[in-house]
Design a protein around this nucleic acid. Structure first.
Ligand code: MN
Ligand code: MN
Length: 475
DNA sequence: ACATAGC
DNA sequence: GCTATGTCAGGTGCT
DNA sequence: AGCACC
């Protein structure tokens, strides 16, 4: 298979590079295309200038190494994209299909058109095959947004442009209606990140932009609020019980704590308005349960939380890779994200089919194997004193009421970092937590979409997985 | 943000 | 009446 | 029962 297509258009006699397409083709279609490509392989670059296929982009800061296979520029395909960047390549390109009706030599740059026609571009091409990665670099934002509309039903899945901004840069206090609820945002000029001078407004605008991608991981889940009303260097506090303290449209989930004989209520996220409401309270971090109120004791995912303590992030990356190998060996799907702070989170989809207890014990089995393979710098001891500074393979977050920073959650850390879902091919030397922030995550999402989505899928078969553990690892 | 204690 | 201060977690593994 | 930990 190939990871991306390099395409271009003719300027006079010269074929000019216009970008790399990494999405929009199915596995089946890819197979057919590869057959077609076989006869067109050539040894030299057909473009006027050779593109750098390994150039990092803003949303793939550390792309997997790609090798190019050049093709004769004989084939034409259709591509949707949101605009041309200042570097002259397509922004958020997505493959829309081959065009057997067009000759390669006819493919010219399209002019900006009215909103009714063509977000479409025809191009001749060649391709850089690679294993299975999905790379799609591009660079820097254009200064204006060249409006390219959608050509109706022709485009099934055009790359989405970033959502527009929620709050204006001028007023310190603003009201907006979201999901039919009037939300008041105040203290918008308050500096939440002093070193960078990022404000509460910056954070709220971020949450608004990513809300559609983030909501599935929050909806119907009780929340543990961790509030920083005066920014990341100010005092913070936890808030779980919101009974009588939130507007009536905010959903809640009743509970009783062990010691206190008082009725309490968790806040439950239900829509964008509730996400923005939490953020407006200074909840920089969003910390949802792993289960929903529909099945409060049955988590949708199992978490393996890698906490580095004194170790380098390189070692955490190595630990994540070993964890992935162990899970691959027993045929268990898993997905990975940066914590946004110092560690890495690995999620295994459970489909709300098992209890927290089962999830925890499954995680324990996995991390026990990982620890035995990396005894030098990992630990599963709960007591920090016994860990001796090793990476903690934390499986104990798989219990009722425990939370972790959600996918795409902002963290109260320098740089306004966010928890960033990753492709496994990005989890390698060179990965940096600080590469993912409130300012570049919306672009990455528009480009590659929510790659964490399978976490909410059908879920693994734990019985089969445990059987595989027994046979593969002889435990 | 809000309740209560203290001046 | 005004300002200062306090409060806004909690279950669990373990000793 | 109390503490440490997340
Ligand atoms: Mn962690
Ligand atoms: Mn942890």
């Amino acid at each position: 298979a190939f990871s991306a297509l390099l395409v271009g258009v003719y300027r006079g006699k010269k074929l000019h590079y216009t970008g790399k397409i990494g999405t929009g083709f199915s596995d089946k279609l890819q197979k057919e295309m590869m057959k077609q490509f076989a006869a067109l392989v050539r040894s030299t670059n057909p473009f006027d200038e050779e593109p750098d296929v390994n150039k990092p982009s803003r949303f793939r800061p550390n792309p997997p190494h790609a090798e190019v296979t050049w093709l004769k520029p004989a084939l034409v395909c259709e591509v949707s994209y949101t605009e041309m960047t200042t570097d002259g390549v397509m922004r958020h390109p997505s493959f829309e299909g081959m065009r057997i009706d067009k000759k390669a030599s006819q493919v010219k740059e399209e002019k900006a058109m009215a909103v009714t026609k063509a977000a479409v571009k025809k191009t001749a091409k060649k391709s850089p095959p690679k294993k299975k990665a999905k790379g799609t670099p591009r660079k820097a934002a254009g200064p204006t947004s060249t409006k390219t509309g959608r050509a109706g039903s022709l485009l099934k899945k055009a790359a989405k442009a970033e959502r527009k901004t929620l709050l204006n840069p001028a007023d310190a206090s603003q009201e907006r209606t979201v999901n039919g609820e009037k939300l008041k945002f105040s203290n918008l000029d308050k500096i939440y990140w002093p070193k960078e001078k990022y404000t509460k407004r910056d954070m709220l605008n971020y949450y608004y932009k990513v809300a559609p991608y983030m909501l599935p991981y929050l909806k119907d889940r009780p929340q543990s609020l961790n509030r920083y009303p005066n920014g990341i260097n100010g005092p913070s506090f936890y808030q779980k019980d919101v009974k009588g303290k939130v507007p009536e449209w905010i959903r809640t989930f009743p509970y009783r704590s062990e010691d206190e004989a008082r009725d309490k209520e968790f806040l439950v996220a239900s829509n964008e308005a509730s996400l923005l409401y939490m953020a407006s309270l200074g909840a920089i971090e969003i910390n949802p349960w792993s289960s929903t109120i529909r099945k409060p004791d049955q988590p949708d995912w199992c978490i393996i939380d890698l906490d580095p303590d004194t170790n380098t992030f390189e070692k955490v990356i190595e630990t994540a890779r070993v964890t992935k190998e162990v899970l691959d060996a027993i045929k268990v799907d898993c997905y990975v994200k940066t914590s946004g702070s110092t560690g890495i989170h690995i999620y295994i989809p459970l489909g709300a089919k098992y209890t927290y207890e089962q999830s925890k014990e499954f995680a324990r089995a996995i991390v026990t194997i990982v620890q035995s393979q990396l005894p030098g710098f990992t630990s599963i001891e709960r007591a920090t004193k016994l860990r001796k500074g090793k990476i903690y393979l934390d499986f104990l977050q798989n219990r009722p009421q425990a939370t972790l920073a959600a996918p795409y959650s902002v963290r109260p850390k320098p740089g306004a970092t966010v928890s960033a879902p990753l492709d496994w091919d990005e989890v390698k030397k060179g990965l940096k937590l600080k590469d993912f922030t409130i300012f570049n995550m919306p672009d990455r999402l528009a480009g590659i979409g929510d790659i964490f989505k399978p976490v909410l899928g059908k879920g693994i078969n734990m019985k089969t997985a445990i059987k595989n553990i027994e046979s593969v690892f002889e435990v």
